[in-house]
Design a protein around this nucleic acid. Structure first.
Lengths: 132, 132
DNA sequence: ATTGACGTTCCAGTGACTGGAACCCTTATA
DNA sequence: TATAAGGGTTCCAGTCACTGGAACGTCAAT
């Protein structure tokens, strides 16, 4: 199967698949006589694994770990769970940061008339002297 | 004032300040006879504006817009409000994405024993065939 | 034989810094 | 006065995860 079909089936862009190959996340597939990458069902399965894991926000490095655990019969589910929980912690941290930004911004937006005049509490806040 | 002191007062790293100068976000400050950057109070004020705006998640490009509005006496608060609201929308989108990832991941983590055995619902989910 | 839709490689750019090398300036001390 | 420490300077490269684009090759159908 050509890269285009593999891409369609895995919901990755062909460019992305080549990139993953170039950084060693996935193995180089077979090639046709003409030099085209030739993907089999197992390759597409791996590609989908990667696409789903990336879609859940795992970094490429984490996906590499998950893939290697997936292919390791002696893995422990504790290892997989640890990676996943660390990732959830990461997400929690990001969400808290966004939440705090949003609270401040929402407050400022409510203060601002948003009309033709230049007076603006948002700019006033950004320009205010340091706290401590 | 040297870059180190300006950095301390604005809570930016010296490297970051030089970077902002190199991309045109802030103006090049005066130089001493020895070639050191020499910051005044107004420069530090701008630096703090930038630091605070970046801390609220505005992109460097957005900070540039905000700075130019700040320095424009004919600005309208509507323009500032529009940028801010667009940024809040951005944050909302990111938060929703993170929320959805987190829901899925939390569910999977709860399913996983996290023990010495290899059976793992997390990997099973990542490896499951495509939906549609 | 030619067209068009695919495929190939390689280089460069994105955003927002950050690390590091090689070097210069300033100030305090022996 | 020499020197050492702790600033500062520039410039290049690396990060992360792609993405765009150029220049070219392959394949299937007309």
């Amino acid at each position: 199967m050509n890269i285009g079909d593999a891409a369609a089936q895995s919901e990755l862009a062909p460019k992305t698949i080549r990139y993953y190959e170039s950084v060693g996340l996935i193995q180089s597939p077979a090639r046709t006589a003409g030099g085209y990458r030739d993907y089999g069902e197992a390759d597409v399965q791996t590609l989908r694994f990667v696409a789903r894991a990336r879609g859940l926000g795992f970094s490429v490095a984490q996906v590499a770990e998950l893939l290697s655990l997936y292919n390791d019969r002696d893995r422990t589910s504790a290892d997989v769970k640890a990676i996943t929980m660390a990732h959830i912690d990461d997400i929690d941290r990001k969400m808290a940061e966004l939440e705090s930004m949003k609270n401040t911004l929402s407050h400022l937006v409510h203060m601002c008339h948003g009309d033709d005049r230049p007076d603006c509490p948002i700019l006033d806040d950004l320009a205010k002297p340091a706290d401590h």
